[in-house]
Nucleic acid binder design. Structure first.
Lengths: 287, 287
DNA sequence: TCCCAAAGGTCCATAATGTGGATCAAGATT
DNA sequence: AATCTTGATCCACATTATGGACCTTTGGGA
């Protein structure tokens, strides 16, 4: 191993814990379908024995489980328990569940709740609509770089400009590799349009004919807590209906924001050391 | 370090990951109030630098957060996200939320959902009642040895006899230390009574005048998935009312069991290596 | 205001721990 | 039957975690 991070302030170490938790997060991105060892080795940037050893440790604690038949790895019951206990402080989905149900009931289309996680957005929940044609581009657990997708763009647009730039820079490699049509310049444009219109529109950028509208949900201090979004085929997303949908979504977003204000003040400012080297973006050379 | 576990089947190791995740679980037991470094050092059985180093790693990944003012440690947002994603497979609380609301509304008393975690039961949710006198003996995150408390006893009673014995044995030290009135013999008696009556009764065993009734929720295969319970002061728990409450709870338990049956079959059998040395029960000698 | 106790936090020499190339095993595919 | 792919593991090597001793901050008490 070549470089040793400068150790901002003593007591670093526990690197295998960092690796293990990055792996855990990586598994979570695969959602319901789980992931194979090979996928994790490839995308996590760790070699096979190390990956496996960390997976075993995560399984010992119940954070992960492995299907005996398919050999796939899934989030485990301990992860569920911890999350449920943490939801006393971060219960965005609980708070938003009614709104998602309402939106999907009224519009017949599928609605989503997304949040920011590092430089990506993650779909926390997908509420099915009843309309017969539905897009399946977005599922719970799926991740997109911030700015890619309606909810994702709504969140990005709610961030301060300097953070947007930092995020776009960090995401540049991923964007080039996976979304060649969606460069930083395009996203900057989209942010401007979103801010002007007051809502985010994804006109089939990820999957043709799969359009979506996104609206940010704000913390009392103005920072985005997440985003609501509704997806449908393009014919159901013409300008007139866009306005209707946005109006419905605004009502729900206000409700959620009101409830959020009651959730947060459990504690003051929070401290969180930065993780210099998260997995996920394959790191060349290192290990 | 003296003994080295026999290594059931190659590729053990990643012990710091085990320790870190045990710490994480330990923090979760403190619920909303969070925990201090000293508490974690004492109860986790690790020394201060090690504890702190692991806490830093857990914070780097977002699983924990530290309040800058009080220096207390809490579950973090990443824990919430993972749990939310895992709830696609383990959504007992989501499934039970309506029932808890209903129970507390109809009875005016506080109701709880608990589940098994190792040899303890953990309270996943507390649904406040409206009645003016309420017990605060049980909060979300709190843990009791299985058999101690109404919900906890209901779960224990639903387990096969040999598991009950193993659990009672494992919990013996904790019982002696913290619940001197509740030895294995007493709990065995309580299990028999519970099985006969069809519900668990805690007649103020933990806190005087704080009574509770518990009812197990079963998986389709018969194993307990958790338990509902309702707590009130003794005057509201006389035999006549016990019967009323149990009837209400049975209705809700059936509903939850029906929904559970739809949740599980996402996958077949699951593999989970055992963790030979979880923290929490202070281990002498070993660091 | 000063002092002291208690708790949070960190240093660094020691030694235990994790690492990963090579290898085996078991299904799938041709 | 031979080959390929993926899961899983072995074990010599050296990077990494460990924890006693120490420093720092906070909050009483006199």
């Amino acid at each position: 191993m070549e470089q040793r991070v400068a150790s901002t302030s003593g007591l670093s170490g526990a690197q295998s814990v960092d690796r293990a938790l990055s792996l855990l997060s990586l598994v979570s991105y695969f959602g319901d379908q789980g992931s194979t060892l090979s996928e994790l080795v490839e995308q996590g940037g760790l070699n096979k024995p190390t990956t496996r050893r960390l997976l075993l440790a995560l399984m010992r604690s119940g954070m992960l489980e492995q299907d005996e038949m398919t050999r796939r790895y899934f989030l485990g019951e301990e992860a569920y328990i911890l999350g449920t206990l943490a939801s006393r402080r971060y219960g965005l989905l609980q708070i938003s569940r009614d709104s998602l149900t309402t939106l999907s009931a009224k519009t017949e289309d599928t609605s989503f709740l997304s949040i920011q996680r590092e430089t990506s957005s993650v779909c926390l929940h997908r509420e099915e609509g009843t309309y017969q044609i539905r897009t399946h581009a977005l599922q719970a657990g799926y991740r997109h770089p911030l700015g890619v997708g309606a909810g994702s763009l709504a969140i990005l647009s709610a961030l301060p400009d300097e953070e947007i730039e930092a995020i776009l820079e960090a995401n540049d490699p991923v964007l080039q590799a996976e979304y060649p049509n969606l460069g930083p310049a395009q996203i900057r444009d989209d942010v401007a349009t979103t801010r002007e219109a007051g809502f985010a529109l994804n006109p089939g950028r990820i999957l043709a004919n799969s359009w979506a509208i996104g609206l940010a949900i704000h913390h009392p201090d103005g920072r985005p807590a997440g985003a609501l979004s509704i997806a449908a085929i393009d014919s159901r997303m013409q300008p007139a209906r866009q306005i209707e949908l946005v109006a419905l979504m605004q009502v729900e977003a206000r409700k959620i924001e009101a409830r959020l204000a009651h959730l947060q003040p459990l504690n003051g400012r929070i401290k969180r050391p930065v993780n210099p080297a998260r997995l996920g973006t394959k790191v060349e050379g290192a290990n």
